Amino acid sequence: MLTGKQKRYLRSLAHHINPIFQVGKGGVNENMIKQIDEALEKRELLKVSILQNCDEDKETVANEIVEGTKAELVQIIGNIIVVYKESREHKEITLPV
C-alpha cells in the first residue's frame, strides 16, 4: 500500500509521461491486462487513457487493471489512470519512506 507521500512522488514522475495504453469500447480484457503487466515490469509507472466510447466507468476500469496486474493505483485524473508496480528486474524508481 502506498502512502500519501509516495503517491505524491509518483504523480510528479507521471506528469511527464504519455499514456501508452487506451481502453475503448471493448473495455479491459485479459490480453490488455497481460500487456499492461509486461509494460509495468519494464517501466514501473505508466498511464492508461480511457476513450470516450468506453462502456465502463473509469473507477471500474482502474479496479480491473489494478486487480489484474496486482499494481497500485496512484491516481485517476480526468480520463487518465496512473498505475505503479515495483519491477522485479528493472527497478529504477526509489520511493520515499
Rank of each mutant, 00 (worst) to 15 (best):
I33Y: 06
T69H: 08
E92L: 05
I20M: 01
V23M: 07
L51Y: 07
L95E: 07
N63F: 05
I50L: 13
Y9G: 08
N18K: 13
A39P: 04
Q35H: 14
H16R: 12
A71C: 09
T69D: 07
K58M: 13
I80D: 07
Q35A: 13
I80T: 05
I93H: 08
V48M: 08
P96T: 01
A14Q: 02
I33F: 10
A39T: 05
S49R: 02
I93A: 10
S49H: 13
K42F: 14
Q52L: 12
L46E: 02
Q35D: 15
L10D: 07
N18R: 12
E30L: 14
G27M: 03
V66E: 02
I20K: 03
V74W: 04
K5F: 08
Y84I: 04
R8N: 13
V82I: 10
P96D: 08
I50C: 06
K85H: 09
D57T: 00
Q22Y: 06
E89S: 03
Q35C: 13
T69G: 02
C54R: 02
Y9W: 08
G78E: 06
P96K: 09
N63T: 14
E92P: 01
T3W: 11
K85D: 08
E38R: 14
M32V: 10
E38C: 11
L2A: 01
Y84A: 12
R43M: 13
N29W: 06
S49N: 02
A14P: 03
N63P: 00
N29H: 10
H90P: 00
E64F: 08
A71T: 03
I77W: 11
G26Q: 08
A62M: 00
S12Q: 12
T60V: 10
N53E: 14
V74M: 05
I81F: 00
N18Y: 07
C54S: 08
K47W: 03
L10I: 03
K5T: 12
L51I: 09
M32Q: 14
A62G: 04
I36G: 09
N53D: 13
G68Y: 09
N63M: 11
N29R: 06
R88Q: 06
E56M: 15
